[in-house]
């Protein structure tokens, strides 16, 4: 773990911190966790992300922060190849998951997505399924046979912090829950296929403060044995849940990583003035 931590510390000798290219240590590529190397994304002619190289150490929480429209959500979708559904999308660079390049020609996309779970901005349980069916939907989709469905169900719902609230109404429709409960149901659904990485796209932006707190607790607990990447607009949330932070910014051109470091460093002594301005709420 100590080694992993060092890799995210900005190399002070590199003066060109703007591209963020120094954040990823080349030596780390291909080891545990998730690394991106020189990621660019285009939508048609529009260049939306430029040269993002980041390291997400295993069993850590990384917050992606920055103003709207700087490409954080797009970057998140690059990590599980969900952006390629958008017509006109193109990219460059590499993403390594546990040593395997996920854009390689031999990669089975659906099998890769099983290892990378995702939670969306708006809770989106399948309305045609019950709560229990929702949790186990991923297994059904991937045709994975499980010996003991009930215990898996309980385990996932417990880890998502929802078990106590729904254990008596597992047969009800997923859409009968409140917004916060639905979002935790979606987390449980993502957990059921035992992913190594969990991507969360502003998971609390549609929730009330109490539900937000519960989801945040869940994130912290999950990070004990998962790599979590969470996009957030909420500075306090980033400070509360993340171990590392990457600050994205677009000056009208493609989005770039201005600075990536331990969360404490980003919030207390960032090396870039724009980061300081942003985390103190002076813009964005």
């Amino acid at each position: 773990m100590e080694n992993d931590d060092i890799n995210l510390v900005v190399n002070a000798t590199n003066t060109n911190a703007v591209t963020g290219g120094n954040v990823l240590d080349e030596g780390r590529v291909g080891t545990n966790g998730l690394q991106t190397k020189g990621i660019h994304v285009w939508f048609g002619k529009h260049h939306v992300l430029e040269d993002i190289s980041l390291d997400f150490p295993a069993n850590s929480v990384t917050g992606l922060i920055g103003p709207s429209g700087c490409g954080k959500s797009t970057f998140l979708r690059v990590l599980n190849r969900m952006h390629e559904f958008i017509p006109g999308a193109a990219m460059a660079g590499e993403v390594f998951l546990d040593g395997e390049e996920i854009y390689g020609p031999k990669v089975d996309v659906t099998a890769m997505r099983l290892k990378v779970g995702m939670v969306f901005q708006k809770p989106n349980p399948f309305p045609s399924m019950t709560i229990a069916e929702n949790v186990l939907a991923g297994l059904k989709l991937a045709n994975i046979k499980v010996q003991d469905k009930d215990s898996l169900l309980e385990e996932c719902l417990t880890r998502a912090g929802l078990w106590k609230e729904v254990k008596d109404r597992l047969k009800l429709s997923g859409s009968s829950l409140s917004g916060g409960q639905q979002q935790r149901l979606c987390i449980a659904r993502a957990l059921a296929v035992k992913p190594k990485v969990l991507l969360m796209d502003e998971p609390c932006s549609a929730l009330d403060p109490a539900s937000t707190l519960k989801v945040e607790e869940t994130i912290v607990q999950l990070s004990a044995d998962m790599t979590i990447v969470v996009v957030t607009h909420n500075m306090q949330q980033a400070a509360r849940v993340s171990d590392f932070c990457a600050f994205f910014l677009s000056d009208g051109g493609p989005g770039q990583v201005v600075e990536a470091d331990r969360t404490a460093v980003i919030f207390s002594s960032p090396s870039d003035q724009r980061t300081a301005d942003y985390v103190q709420g002076r813009f964005g």
């Binding site: 660019h40 999308a89 990219m91 460059a92």
Partner: peptide
């Protein structure tokens, strides 16, 4: 110069 690609 980085060229856009569509690996998928």
């Amino acid at each position: 110069e980085v060229q856009p690609q569509k690996p998928w």
